[in-house]
Computed example of a mutant assay.
Amino acid sequence: MELKPRVLIVGGGAIGALFGWRLSQSDKVTVSIVCRSNYRQVKLHGYSMKSAQFGNQIYRPHRVFQSIEEAALDASYDYVIVALKALPNLYDSAERISMVVSPQTMIMVFQNGIGIEEPFVKRFPNNPLVSTVSFVSVKQEEHVKHGGFSMLAFGIHNKFIERDELIKANDKLEFISQVFIDQGVSSIIEADIQPYRWQKHILNGSTNPVSVICGGASCQEMVKNDYCRKLLEETMQEIFVLGKKVTGKAFPGTDGIVDPQSATQYIKSIPVPVYTSMLVDSQCKRPMERDVILKNPIMLADKHGVDVPHMKALYAMVTMIEEGYSK
């Protein structure tokens, strides 16, 4: 009997839980997950999922591991989904997953930010690498709470791999994409994923750092304040200009976001308060994804001659806030 493709999710937070849950509803794959701080809870009780789109359910992964080393002893994996925080200033996500990557593994990076792919290309030059952009509202508290929409945009990043291998990789990606579609997650495959990554970054690169500096405001509260909305829109404009310069393409306009004003109108339309991941990390005195959200884009701006004074100011401030945790 042919074995089902094995999926391993590395990172047991909200994103890993939500998309692991959707995949696990299919009888075409088996889904295991590596947890850290929540290992005992998930191992004993599973995840309590509360979703406006998919309903409520207790999700119990096929296997729950407390370390990469434990997962590596259990099986080889056809797909490794990286749902770790992107913190290159603290650790190398590519190195962290190395024990569970075989020559047959497709690596799917579900991380926020810009420039997140390069460590994986460097560490695994012969494995197909899928850069994945998730458009979703989900957070983990006592329950994993998800809104009414979920979309994934996939793109094979390392197209320089050998042609026959690229054909196999496309087939493999189409398979897992269809599994997501079958379980209610909108899914598209793009030849060039970077415009989608920059599209998401319009909100990520502005609301995340500004919410930290505002001391705990929701996204809706920020756009209601005239001064704060102006700061957000001017930061968004820098991201629009920089992203188009780097990619050479227009953004896809997901959620109708085609300029800073439509982005802030979109935020206003969200019915429940949205608190950014960087804000939550800051409040818990955890490291923030400041490098992939701000530093990497700033480095690209300097390379391409694009002026980004707001992003540079925000980076300086969130860096100082994080460095103040220990004081």
Score class of each variant (00 low, 15 high):
residue 1 M to F: 10
residue 3 L to D: 05
residue 6 R to F: 08
residue 7 V to M: 07
residue 11 G to C: 11
residue 11 G to Q: 08
residue 12 G to N: 07
residue 17 A to S: 12
residue 18 L to V: 13
residue 25 Q to D: 11
residue 25 Q to N: 11
residue 27 D to M: 11
residue 31 V to A: 02
residue 33 I to R: 02
residue 33 I to L: 04
residue 39 Y to L: 03
residue 44 L to P: 00
residue 45 H to V: 00
residue 46 G to C: 04
residue 47 Y to T: 00
residue 50 K to A: 12
residue 50 K to D: 10
residue 54 F to G: 02
residue 56 N to V: 05
residue 60 R to Q: 13
residue 66 Q to E: 07
residue 66 Q to A: 01
residue 67 S to T: 06
residue 73 L to K: 14
residue 73 L to W: 04
residue 73 L to P: 06
residue 76 S to Y: 07
residue 78 D to S: 06
residue 84 L to N: 09
residue 84 L to S: 10
residue 85 K to R: 09
residue 87 L to E: 04
residue 95 E to F: 07
residue 96 R to W: 04
residue 98 S to P: 07
residue 100 V to E: 10
residue 101 V to Y: 00
residue 105 T to W: 11
residue 106 M to V: 14
residue 106 M to Y: 08
residue 114 I to A: 03
residue 115 G to P: 01
residue 120 F to G: 02
residue 124 F to N: 05
residue 125 P to K: 09
residue 127 N to Q: 13
residue 132 T to F: 00
residue 133 V to C: 10
residue 135 F to I: 02
residue 135 F to P: 00
residue 136 V to T: 02
residue 137 S to I: 05
residue 139 K to Q: 14
residue 141 E to T: 15
residue 143 H to I: 01
residue 145 K to A: 12
residue 154 F to G: 00
residue 154 F to N: 02
residue 157 H to Q: 07
residue 157 H to R: 12
residue 166 L to H: 12
residue 168 K to N: 15
residue 174 E to S: 15
residue 179 V to D: 11
residue 182 D to L: 06
residue 182 D to C: 06
residue 182 D to F: 05
residue 185 V to K: 02
residue 190 E to C: 11
residue 191 A to N: 12
residue 191 A to Q: 15
residue 195 P to F: 08
residue 197 R to G: 01
residue 200 K to V: 08
residue 203 L to N: 00
residue 204 N to G: 05
residue 208 N to T: 08
residue 210 V to I: 14
residue 211 S to F: 01
residue 212 V to E: 08
residue 212 V to L: 09
residue 214 C to F: 11
residue 214 C to I: 11
residue 215 G to Y: 08
residue 216 G to D: 03
residue 216 G to L: 02
residue 220 Q to Y: 06
residue 221 E to Y: 13
residue 222 M to N: 06
residue 224 K to P: 00
residue 225 N to H: 15
residue 235 T to R: 01
residue 237 Q to N: 12
residue 238 E to F: 11
residue 244 K to H: 10
residue 248 G to I: 01
residue 249 K to Q: 13
residue 254 T to A: 07
residue 259 D to W: 03
residue 259 D to E: 06
residue 262 S to Y: 08
residue 267 I to M: 13
residue 269 S to R: 09
residue 271 P to S: 04
residue 275 Y to K: 06
residue 277 S to T: 07
residue 277 S to Q: 04
residue 281 D to W: 12
residue 286 R to N: 13
residue 291 D to H: 03
residue 291 D to S: 04
residue 292 V to G: 07
residue 293 I to P: 00
residue 300 L to N: 02
residue 302 D to M: 07
residue 303 K to Q: 15
residue 306 V to Q: 08
residue 307 D to M: 09
residue 309 P to T: 09
residue 310 H to R: 14
residue 310 H to D: 11
residue 311 M to T: 06
residue 317 M to S: 13
residue 324 G to C: 10
residue 327 K to G: 04
